[in-house]
Design a protein around this nucleic acid. Sequence first.
DNA 1: CGTCGGGTTGAGGGTGATCAAAGTTTGTGG
DNA 2: CCACAAACTTTGATCACCCTCAACCCGACG
Lengths: 248, 248
Amino acid sequence: MQSANLLVRKLQLMAPLDAADIAAVEALPMRLKEMKARTPIANEGNHPRECCTVVRGMVVRSKVAESGKRQILSFHIPGDVPDLESLFLAELDHDLSTLSTAILAFVSHQDLLDVIRSRPMVAQALWKCTLIDAAILREWIINLALRPAVARMAHLIAELHYRMAAVGLSSENQFDFPLSQARLGEALGISTVHVNRVLQELRGADVVDIRSNRVTITDLSTLNKMAGFNSVYLHDPRVQPVMVPDPS
Amino acid sequence: MQSANLLVRKLQLMAPLDAADIAAVEALPMRLKEMKARTPIANEGNHPRECCTVVRGMVVRSKVAESGKRQILSFHIPGDVPDLESLFLAELDHDLSTLSTAILAFVSHQDLLDVIRSRPMVAQALWKCTLIDAAILREWIINLALRPAVARMAHLIAELHYRMAAVGLSSENQFDFPLSQARLGEALGISTVHVNRVLQELRGADVVDIRSNRVTITDLSTLNKMAGFNSVYLHDPRVQPVMVPDPS
DNA sequence: CGTCGGGTTGAGGGTGATCAAAGTTTGTGG
DNA sequence: CCACAAACTTTGATCACCCTCAACCCGACG
């Protein structure tokens, strides 16, 4: 099954899995589900009984504050398991929804827990997935708090490019990224109007062209420089180290 | 040993541990170390070979951006293991340092991995610790991105109060919080000057008094309201549910 | 052909940054 | 225990980035 393969390949990067480990993951009963764009998968306060792997498309984690404003916390691409935490945190503390039309593979907590119990290395690999997820959240914080709007945008694009490339979905510096400017603003903590101006600036500087559903990076090294991008936090051996020197 | 007890008590909340599990944790060789305030424990780029539990005092995670500005990512209180991720993420992607004078208990990765291998429930409990850590990071993002400065400050104080209270370190709505206004600014993403004005506002409104090393909450319910505080993300059974209704 | 979501543009305003300087507390060595 | 330095707090003034509001445009789709 293709969805299991995607997961196996990712988990193999995380920990040394033997044949039995791999067999156990491949044997996991997965319920494939195709979902429309912008459809909720689970919401804050839910008590999910299963986890989902992204097979195709993208998924967003978000949370709404008491003011009613929404903030996107992370984007998830094929191979990710965006709600893996729900295995041990009974109550979901954020919303999860599709961005594009997507195919998700659902696995019950019960089945997953069985594998975790019988295959410690698989458990470790999954654990490591959640740790990398947290590392990306930390960088997200840096992005929101420390960088001006243009750099913020550049960083988001750079991160997604490398993550997408790692699973073969960004070739020739192009990848699908189907979201409106309003949602880009929700991810970066800037207003829709300002997103528009930032995009124009990046387009005008011939660095990156972000349209409604596709990103084209014209000048990756300038993009990295503008973003101050440093790939360490991705903890992914498939990503070539990128390290922009300090301007000092 | 007191340091092991602190950890055991926390892990017991995370997963049902039996006597053998507890014995294994208590048997972990721990190297106690007293450290001065504002001393680095480990830095970005390091490859730690041990983890540390906070026994007394506080620890901060931070990261400096290419601009040279620093952002505090999280505060860690007694019972926390702020670098647990280093077990599986070889290269540290942030800095870790003491805030106050602190006592830390160091455990080697090797010993920890042995326990994880032999005691699956302990592994699960530790895993859950890292998941809650990530949940707190998510709320930190909301705080930085969505709330104005005063609410941001209020939220930070409310969160710390509940976490400290859970380990018996916030009584009578007072707790130690030894950091300068400059560092508060680094945590909240606002300038030192503005931190000062925010503190005066909160003090003037008789909500909370934050001085150089101690926080006194005068009016907890107003504080929660200003913060839009909702305790779900802490995933801690010791914390009474707090839920501020939307102003809508 | 009208509507609707999304993109684009302009004008004005606010939150919080930056700069600068005066107090105040803390700490350290004499 | 005092003297002095260093770090931290406080206050005022100015300014920038980005927000909000408002209008208009465009293409998709019924």
